[in-house]
C-alpha cells in the first residue's frame, strides 16, 4: 500500500523534497530577482527630482530586492507543500511525527537575526548619510546633509486647511505657494497653528509633521526644476483631503525674480504679520468644525 509506505517515510519511497524545493527556489530567484531589480526597480516611486527621492528610491529598490528571495522561498515552499504533501483519497492518514529540528531552528534564527541586524545597520547608516532622508527631525536634527550651513530656510505653516510658507531670509515674507531654487539645500521648518498636520511634498520626498509649538526641520535638495504636489498627510479635520497645493522648483534666476516679486507685492502684509518665529502660539481651540 502506497499510503503505508508514505507513513513510514522510508527514504527509498520519498523523493528528496528539500533538494527539489531548494532547486526551484534558486531557479525562481535567478529569474525573478534581476527582473525586480532592473525591470520593476526603476519604476518604484518616488522618482528622481531631489537628492532625497533618489535616496528613498535606492533604499526601496534594495529592500524590494532583499524581500524577493524571502517571498519566493515562502511561496515556493508553500506551493510545493500544497502540491506534494497532500492527502490523496478520503482516508485520514497521519504524517510522520516530526516535532522539530534543533539545527533548522537555530539556522533559521541565525539567518533572520543576521538579516535584521544587516537591515538595521543599513537603515541607520543610510539615514545618517542622507541627512535625515527628507523626514522631519525635530528642532535639533541629528542627521544633516553635508552642505546644511548654506541651506535656504523655508518655514512651512500648516493650519486648517491650508499651507503657507515664510522665507525668513527674505524679510519673513509669507506666500501661499511654495517655490524653491534648484540645486540648493533647503531647510524646511514645519510648524502648525492648530492641530497636527503633516507636510508631504511628494515629488521632493519630504515629509514632516506640523505640530503646534514645535519646529520640525527637514532637509531637501531638489535637482530638477518643475512642479510638485504638497498634501497633508495627517488627519486634521473636515477638509484634510483638500489641504493640497502645488509648488515649483525654479532655476536660480527665476527664483530670485519670484521672491523679489513676492517681497514687493506682500510688503504691506508682511508688516502686519507676527515677526518671524520658529513657532507660533494661537489657541488651537478655534472651533473650526
Amino acid at each position: 500500500m502506497s499510503e503505508a509506505a508514505a507513513v513510514s517515510g522510508g527514504p527509498g519511497a520519498e523523493p528528496r523534497h528539500g533538494v527539489r524545493i531548494a532547486t526551484i527556489w534558486a531557479v525562481a530567484t535567478a529569474i525573478v530577482l534581476p527582473l525586480v531589480i532592473w525591470v520593476v526597480g526603476p519604476h518604484i516611486p518616488p522618482g528622481a527630482m531631489s537628492q532625497q527621492t533618489r535616496d528613498q528610491h535606492q533604499v526601496d529598490v534594495v529592500l524590494t530586492a532583499l524581500a524577493t528571495p524571502i517571498v519566493l522561498l515562502i511561496w515556493v515552499y508553500f506551493g510545493y507543500a500544497v502540491r506534494v504533501f497532500r492527502n490523496h483519497g478520503t482516508a485520514v492518514v497521519d504524517g510522520p511525527p516530526i516535532t522539530g529540528n534543533r539545527r533548522i531552528e537555530a539556522t533559521w534564527l541565525i539567518a533572520t537575526s543576521a538579516l535584521v541586524l544587516g537591515l538595521a545597520v543599513f537603515g541607520t547608516a543610510d539615514l545618517l548619510a542622507t541627512g535625515g532622508a527628507g523626514g522631519g527631525e525635530g528642532p535639533n536634527p541629528v542627521a544633516k546633509p553635508a552642505d546644511w550651513r548654506g541651506a535656504l530656510p523655508v518655514q512651512v505653516i500648516g493650519q486648517q486647511w491650508l499651507w503657507t510658507f515664510r522665507y525668513p531670509t527674505y524679510g519673513g515674507v509669507e506666500t501661499t505657494t511654495l517655490e524653491l531654487p534648484v540645486n540648493r539645500e533647503i531647510e524646511f521648518h514645519v510648524t502648525s497653528l492648530d492641530v497636527v498636520h503633516s507636510f508631504w511634498a511628494i515629488e521632493l520626498g519630504v515629509k514632516a509633521d506640523a505640530v503646534l509649538g514645535a519646529d520640525n526641520i527637514a532637509f531637501d535638495k531638489p535637482f530638477e526644476t518643475g512642479p510638485f504636489q504638497v498634501r497633508c498627510d495627517e488627519l486634521c479635520g473636515l477638509w484634510h483631503g483638500h489641504m493640497n497645493t502645488t509648488g515649483r522648483v525654479l532655476s536660480d534666476a527665476n527664483f530670485a525674480t519670484w521672491i523679489t516679486n513676492q517681497e514687493r507685492k506682500n510688503a504691506a502684509l508682511t508688516k502686519q504679520l507676527p515677526p518671524y518665529s520658529r513657532v507660533y502660539y494661537p489657541s488651537p481651540l478655534r472651533n473650526a468644525s
Binding site: 508553500f78 497532500r86 516530526i98 537603515g123
Partner: peptide, 25 residues
C-alpha cells in the same frame, strides 16, 4: 525590525508542520 525574528518563527512553525504532511484542504 527585530520583531520580524519572532514573527519569522511563526512562519518556520507553519513550514515545519507542513513538511511531508498529509494535507486535507
Amino acid at each position: 525590525e527585530l520583531i520580524s525574528i519572532p514573527t519569522g518563527i511563526i512562519f518556520l512553525n507553519g513550514m515545519g508542520t507542513l513538511w511531508k504532511a498529509r494535507i486535507r484542504f
